[in-house]
Simulated assay, not measured.
Amino acid sequence: MAELLWYHYLLIALIFVWSGFVRSGLGFGGAALSLPFLLLIDNNPLIFLPIIAIHLLVFSSSTVVISAINNRNIGGTSTPFGAGINWHYLRYALLIMIIPKLLGVFGLITLPATLMSSIIFTIVSIYAIGYILNRPFRSNSKTIDALFLMLGGYISGSSLIGAPLIIAVFANHVDKHQLRDTLFVLWFILVTIKMTAFITVGIDLQLIHQLWLLPCATIGHLIGLRFHKKMLTADSPLFFRVLGTALLVISMIGLVKGLL
């Protein structure tokens, strides 16, 4: 990271607490709902994406394992490990997403940081407008399913913020009680691909910053786990409208800064 002031580090810590909360509470959005705020502090996606990627690997794997153990404790030893995951649809979606995912990773590595930041702010602005209007992405045909999965795979490869598009498809084909764990397995696989590319080309993984940011994300993660069931049953359009408005303002500020 560039040389920052003390309050910048404080803001980064709070953003990662928020990121962990969103990720475990909703099952998605840890990157999409935090990256715009981070880029206003340091406008270089390759600074924060490795940190977010490692957090995803840690928390997605731990959440799925703990969930599987809890399911076995409830259902008895006859319950298969990973019964809370829709493996069939997961394999189908990965076949569609893998090539766009690799193309997105290539774009992230080769395109200028300022251009990638502008792309991220633009994508998040589109998501934000959907939240404000209470019109999230929806898919009602196999063609749109495939299109959303390919776009989501590409955006995930380039910036880790493809979740809203991917979830628009998965929510139609995966039972609600399996959705979060299935998505976490998907995020783990997609992030592993990205991390492999980072290591291959020698991108700094910012491991020193994991020493203080991983605990911050852990605090948010634990809080989010406590609220997960309530979020599954709650219909909270007001929450997403407020969140969408904040994201839209942040993204507009980021785009303007990028043009100056």
Rank of each mutant, 00 (worst) to 15 (best):
F240S: 06
I203M: 08
S158G: 08
L211S: 12
I208V: 14
G27H: 03
F170L: 14
A53C: 07
L225D: 02
I99T: 09
P136M: 02
S78L: 12
P237V: 06
E3A: 15
D175P: 11
N70V: 13
A31L: 05
H88T: 11
I98W: 02
G30L: 09
I51L: 10
F37G: 06
D145M: 07
I199W: 14
I85P: 02
S34F: 03
I166H: 01
G107E: 12
L222I: 08
I223E: 00
I129Y: 02
W212Q: 05
I85N: 01
M150S: 01
A53T: 11
L90V: 04
S159V: 05
L225A: 01
L247H: 06
V58I: 13
N71T: 09
T196Y: 14
I144A: 02
M252F: 11
A2L: 14
S19Y: 08
L243V: 09
I144W: 00
A217G: 08
D181N: 10
N44Q: 15
L26F: 11
S159T: 08
I155H: 01
S125Y: 03
L190F: 13
L49P: 05
I109H: 06
F121W: 08
V201P: 08
A234H: 11
Y154G: 01
G162E: 04
S117F: 05
L211A: 15
D235L: 14
F148T: 03
I223W: 00
L115F: 15
S19E: 07
T143A: 05
M252I: 15
G130M: 01
V58C: 04
A2H: 12
L11I: 12
F28P: 00
P50L: 06
G224P: 04
N73V: 14
Y154F: 07
V105M: 09
S61G: 11
F188S: 09
N44R: 15
S156D: 10
G153P: 01
F227R: 00
S251H: 11
Q210F: 09
T79S: 08
N71W: 05
S62Y: 11
L260Y: 13
L56T: 15
I144V: 03
V242F: 05
N44G: 13
I85W: 02
L90H: 00
L147Q: 00
P164K: 00
G25S: 02
D145N: 10
F227M: 00
L214D: 11
D175I: 12
F240P: 04
I96D: 06
L94G: 14
L10F: 10
L10C: 09
L95C: 12
S236L: 12
L90T: 04
V249E: 10
N86R: 04
L57A: 09
A53R: 10
P80E: 06
G152V: 00
T77W: 15
S139E: 00
S67H: 07
F16P: 06
S141W: 00
L213D: 05
F16S: 07
S34K: 01
R135C: 05
L179W: 06
A146C: 05
T114G: 12
A2C: 11
R226E: 07
I69F: 10
M116L: 12
L207I: 10
F198A: 08
K101G: 09
